[in-house]
């Protein structure tokens, strides 16, 4: 069996499921040129390539980690990633073309529809909160590190506490405070 590893999963899938950073990064670096070539060939810029590839990569990672995408081998992940990037770029270029040619009447119709949707979405999101990347990036290094170790590296609070040279209870308290701070930052972003 190709790339057999623990639990019968192949190496790359295992890396995505357990957040093995080095293996995921190697895959990112190896796959980027294909999308870059495609987008540059189809009228995009390097900046477009970066944005589209990062979006597609995130979508692929999320699908894998939630078990919604169960590839049988590495080739299937590569194909999924490239197709996602390609579709995003096609969507983006279509959207741009459409936006440039849209008639005024049509435009106002869409605006009205958007506004209706926005109101209902806002009503719905009153109970929701969305943690943005900006909120996370503004969190401060100590909190980012702690949350990353717990939620991404899946380290136990005991190990995190040992690494920080503090008691486990203090580490848990720090984690709780970091989450509250993050939520506050997110709510600040929402109200902007």
């Amino acid at each position: 069996m190709e790339e057999t590893l623990n639990l019968g999963q192949f190496t790359l899938l295992d890396a995505f499921l357990t957040n093995k950073e080095v293996a995921i990064r190697e895959f990112y670096i190896a796959q980027y040129p294909k999308t870059k070539y495609y987008i540059l060939k189809n009228g995009g810029t390097l900046e477009n390539t970066k944005d589209v590839f990062q979006d597609a990569f995130f979508a692929c990672w999320k699908k894998l980690s939630t078990g919604k995408f169960k590839p049988k081998n590495k080739t299937e992940i590569e194909a999924y990633l490239f197709t996602a990037a390609k579709n995003k770029w096609i969507d983006q270029t279509r959207h741009l073309t459409k936006r440039n040619t849209i008639a005024i009447d049509e435009k106002s119709y869409h605006l009205a529809a958007d506004e209706t949707m926005q109101t209902s979405e806002m009503e719905k999101s009153e109970e929701q909160m969305s943690i943005t990347l900006i909120a996370f990036e503004n969190l401060g290094k100590a909190c980012k590190d702690l949350l990353t170790q717990f939620y991404f590296n899946k380290m136990s609070m005991k190990t995190i506490a040992e690494n920080l040279n503090i008691e486990e209870a203090s580490a848990k308290n720090k984690k709780y405070r970091c989450i509250q701070k993050l939520k506050e930052l997110a709510l600040g972003d929402d109200s902007m």
Partner: peptide, 8 residues
């Protein structure tokens, strides 16, 4: 949080 860490 996991999503934002992945993006980061």
């Amino acid at each position: 949080i996991e999503d934002r860490i992945r993006q980061s």
